[in-house]
Design a protein around this nucleic acid. Sequence first.
DNA 1: CATGAGATTGTAA
DNA 2: TTACAATCTCATG
Length: 169
Amino acid sequence: MKSKPVILATCTIQTPRGVFAAHYSAAGLVRLDFPCGVGAARRLSSQRLDAISRSVRRWHKQAGRAVARILQGRLPGELPPLDLATGTPFQRKVWAALRQIPAGQTESYGRLAAALGAPKAARAVGSACGANPVPLLIPCHRVVPAGGGLGGFSVGLHWKRRLLAIEGA
DNA sequence: CATGAGATTGTAA
DNA sequence: TTACAATCTCATG
């Protein structure tokens, strides 16, 4: 039985680049939403921070600081715990590998696949990247096609370009 | 160098 | 079981 984690709180993160939304379960950060495009103000069921548990407040503080730092081209610092219960075993392996790519550096889908012991699963790795629920913190933007170009990005290619530029890659 | 077809893997419906 | 996806590689012109 695979069940989705229960979201306890949805909190916003204000940045010069827009408003992010972070969703938390009892285990940690479940998902990070990017600012949704053209001012289409999507309603967020955010709750008052003071009505939430102590741990969520701490996590949100860490998440907010990490996001802000990354957007400034600095290292994220300490991250909140991530609740990746939604992912399949393969996806979690991919996400774990993503977190080991240092800032300013890029990997190809194919090389990542090889690192996971499945040299021919490049395309599957791409799918797993697209399923990453916590972009930015899990740096899926550092993965590009072996043949050049940018590949794809779930939240919009302009973000991928922007993030890579910020990190100087 | 640009382009296209075929191979290949993991996932959701 | 089928169809799809943020790929790769190799054969051509």
